[in-house]
Nucleic acid binder design. Structure first.
Lengths: 336, 336
DNA sequence: TTGAAAGCGCTAACAT
DNA sequence: ATGTTAGCGCTTTCAA
């Protein structure tokens, strides 16, 4: 590669017959440049198609006006979140840059930390983390907001949604339809969201005075195949549940598919409620009653919060939990 | 310890009692460092949690091992493409960084150019452009691959899909079902893809000896509401078409919705074929027969091509057009 | 084996 | 109003 083909500030200075300092002043609209000089430099900049190097600027100024958003992978959840973030960033004067770990396997924990350290203070003024981990408490000087952190309560500013209440909502909905044998397909055991959804389920049953049958609680793991197997286990017998609360959308779909394979009609023979990880609009066949997470709003709020942090304002709250809603589509039916 | 300042190479050097040069050598595994020194420096690096600044490295080395991917907005198409790109980047030694214009309105053309110029030679070794425009022919020294460029044949290396053939496939499918009055809801007039889909439609009809009725060709604009209005126009009368080819998925869905509102059964009374811009898995109700673009594969190929370009290899081809396939789901029926 | 020094492209004091 | 200069954090000769 020709390494020297880039137009630099020196080329501009030379072509305009001024010093680099003057060009810099023009670039940054600093005072102390004659109108005539200003015009000449501007012309040369246009002609040469010059743009200042982001890198050099970053190195010099410690402010970059860039916000980084680190996602574990590009999938529907993170995508939806990115949209919200992109929404919110408009008009803030910041740019958004997305770093994806690409779902890489090795180095599962350290990735965010490494990246963040390499970028912070230089390339980004702050970051939104959409990756599970984060024990980044001690990261120097770089504001960070964690979205839906998967491990316990984090010391970082956080935006998440109310999985506990969501689990309750889903279960209460099924209870209100008259169901009493309500199964649960759990989520990934290592994630807080899954635990909370399960807690919500248990609480709702308890509150309704319905005993929890542990044999109606099976692993779903947020995974299609595992959920399908569990669903099969659940539904094959005659003592099958009349309703299933699946801890996410994938497993809800797997449940419905399995039910249909077993000759059960949904929702007539089996009611299913899921929990969205992907936005409503993308949720496919069959239409499903789910608990909806405000994913985009989470992205928006994360940016808003982060911008405040970067600007040194005191935000009203640093741990934001957004509500979840039950969205009734077509797959639940009153128990006859 | 100053809490808000970054750990730099000098801090490491000081703590280890060596010069920055030595630390740099350790970082980059250069020869000429005593094993004992190496160990000591390594230890200090760990202790301090030091990571080299990406920015400073970029400024020094002209190689960054980062590939930038510029998207106009985060939406299903670009997302799917990102996934493919993320796939392909694994094992190449490059990182992927996504820049989103956030669908911004002002500065509609210049965005890519500006960004690219600011990044190139410094922050990225090359870029994939997923934005409409691009007359970036003269960009010095930075390899660029355009994906699905919307304006004519580009001088840049390009990856796209065969919209012409796709249009033919869709139309031929409807013809093969016995349809003769086949309407077209066009796409955005300014985009090459839309023109090609229309051309495919016209050619297929011509090849089958079916005359083209211009009043069966209405604007769809890749837009839900516009397409819905046109569909209404098309379907309200008694001389309505028996089939519709919609230039993208959005307008196909709009067509089906409109048809249902008008009391037409789909596919019994009306066959609809669409053209996917979003991946199959995300395509919602109602299940739709579509022409499928290999979006992920486009992302993969773009990266592969770009990596070759960056490494100075001569790629076999610089203009890659991938095939499109007809995916038959449930919304087409033989004309009775 | 190690370190001093130059410089990547840029900005901001501090001259002039 | 303009230019000179000193770095930002890093890598890389080249000399010690």
């Amino acid at each position: 590669m020709p390494p020297s083909s880039r137009v630099t500030i020196r080329d501009v200075a030379a072509a305009a017959g001024v010093s680099v300092a003057t060009v810099s002043k023009v670039l940054n609209n600093r005072y102390g440049v004659a109108a005539e000089t200003f015009a000449r430099v501007t012309t040369v900049i246009e002609e040469l198609g010059y743009e200042a190097s982001l890198v050099a600027q970053s190195l010099r100024n410690h402010r970059t006006n860039v916000i980084g958003i680190l996602v574990a992978d590009i999938e529907p959840f993170s995508t939806e979140l990115l949209k919200g973030a992109a929404d919110a960033i408009r008009g803030t004067g910041f740019e958004l840059v997305v770093y994806s770990a690409g779902g890489r396997t090795g180095d599962p924990q350290g990735w965010e930390r490494r990246y963040l350290t390499r970028l912070s203070g230089t390339l980004v003024d702050g970051a939104v983390l959409v990756t599970p981990a984060v024990d980044l408490e001690g990261l120097p000087g770089t504001p960070v907001v964690a979205v839906d952190p998967h491990t316990g309560r984090s010391p970082l500013p956080t935006v998440d949604s109310d999985n506990l209440h969501g689990g309750q909502l889903a279960t209460e909905h099924l209870l209100s339809l008259g169901h009493r044998r309500i199964a649960l397909l759990t989520g990934r055991e290592d994630l807080k969201s899954a635990q909370q959804r399960e807690t919500g389920y248990r609480r709702a049953l308890a509150a309704a005075g319905v005993p929890v049958h542990e044999d109606l609680i099976l692993r779903g793991d947020y995974d299609h195949d595992i959920a399908a197997r569990s669903a099969h286990e659940l539904l094959k017998g005659l003592d099958r549940p009349t309703a299933v609360f699946a801890a996410n959308d994938i497993s809800a779909i797997a449940t419905i598919e399995t039910a249909l394979e077993l000759g059960l009609r949904v929702p007539d023979d089996l009611s299913v409620v899921g929990f969205d990880n992907i936005p409503e609009s993308a949720l496919c066949s069959p239409p499903l009653t789910t608990v909806q997470q405000p994913i985009r709003e989470m992205g928006r709020r994360a940016i808003t919060l982060l911008v405040k942090l970067i600007d040194g304002e005191m935000p009203d709250e640093t741990h934001i939990t957004l509500g979840t809603d039950l969205v009734i589509r077509r797959s639940t039916a009153r128990l006859s």
